[in-house]
């Protein structure tokens, strides 16, 4: 493989990862606030279909994106209402929604099957795209890819650098303590769940209007992406940077599966297609290894200086979910 192909390939990875990044960041916000939006898989499909349908009918691609965002936000609103206000199980509600949304998207999407529709144009950035290597890699993509880069940074800065972001961490961790510190816990949970849902909807629209442009029903290859995004959220330890890393890793593994297929004729193509999934699980295991007791024991036996360094590293790698994830809050 020559350098040119490699760069084009990697740029493709960044491009293909954009919707996963949106979905993962959306879920990260929602879960940081304490709400699991399990409807993600169906929500992505429905917003992909809806986004495409609106863009096709209105011939306006931005209305298509808007529709995707609104659909995702609306589904998230149902999750929020059921879990925060009605105090129902988030898992049950999300699971039912994910099935309903999927079937709904196949059913309502029938008239739009395989139609040639609008597609987000690529938008090379003047000057920057001319820089060797970096230019074609980073600055020769479309608007949504650029927005995904920006969003990773914004989400990270919001959670870790701003006052409301700090409160968001608190709300997911210990709502009672956040309440004592002045937070309107349930309102904030609504806000972040709906906002996160908007990003999940954006992910759907980005598929149908850019990454896998068009609507092809059950053969769109979108079913399952939401579940992957859910696991990447966990892998990402609810940290936008790590979550984005997970999204890119997954897209990279998928690309490698495609690229390596011709050179590894002995391996059935299905194996390479499925390989990213177990690999993600392995990475998850590795990342959370610091939680295991035997690791602590092994560490204890090491010389003090090595132990310190390793313990720090494991602590930094280790991610525990927001302690109040999935738990309704009542201020007595």
């Amino acid at each position: 493989m020559d350098t040119q192909t490699l760069i084009t390939g990697l740029a493709g990875v960044l491009f293909a990862a954009a919707p996963i990044v949106f979905a993962v960041l959306g879920e990260t916000f929602s879960e940081r606030a304490g709400v699991i939006n399990l409807s993600m898989n169906g929500s992505i499909l429905l917003s992909a279909m809806g986004g495409f349908a609106v863009a096709y009918s209105t011939e306006n691609i931005f209305l298509g994106f808007l529709a995707g965002v609104l659909i995702g936000a609306f589904v998230a609103l149902i999750v929020a209402f059921a879990s925060i206000t009605l105090k129902q199980s988030q898992v049950a509600v999300g699971f039912v929604l994910t099935l309903v949304c999927r079937d709904l998207s196949y059913f309502l999407g029938n008239p739009f099957m395989g139609l040639p529709g609008p597609r987000l144009p690529s938008l090379p950035i003047p000057l920057l795209s001319k820089i060797p290597v970096i230019g074609p890699l980073l600055f020769n993509a479309d608007l949504m890819t650029y927005f995904s880069y920006l969003l990773i940074f914004l989400a990270w800065a919001w959670i870790y650098r701003t006052r409301p972001g700090l409160m968001l961490q608190g709300i997911g961790e210990r709502p009672a303590a956040a309440f004592v510190r002045g937070a309107n816990v349930n309102l904030m949970r609504y806000v972040y769940t709906v906002l996160g849902g908007g990003f999940i909807g954006l992910a759907g629209a980005t598929y149908s209007l850019s990454v896998k442009a068009g609507w092809n029903g059950t053969i769109s290859g979108l079913d399952g992406i939401g579940w992957i995004a859910l696991s990447i959220t966990i892998f990402g330890g609810w940290n936008p940077l790590r979550a984005a890393f997970g999204a890119y890793l997954f897209a990279l593994l998928q690309w490698l599966g495609l690229v390596l297929q011709p050179s590894l004729p002995g391996i059935p193509s299905q194996v390479l297609q499925v390989a990213p999934f177990p690999l993600m699980i392995l990475t998850l295991l590795f990342v959370n290894i610091g939680n295991a007791e035997w690791v602590e024991r092994t560490l204890a036996a090491m010389p003090e200086s090595t132990r310190r360094v390793l313990a720090r590293l494991l602590r930094a790698l280790r991610a525990s979910p927001p302690a109040a994830l999935g738990v309704p809050f009542e201020s007595e």
Partner: peptide
């Protein structure tokens, strides 16, 4: 009523009003 996995400084700061 504090936040065990967070740093002492963040615990101290959380809930204090001020700029973004």
């Amino acid at each position: 009523l504090d936040f065990p996995p967070m740093r002492a400084l963040d615990n101290f700061l959380l809930g204090h009003s001020g700029g973004l």
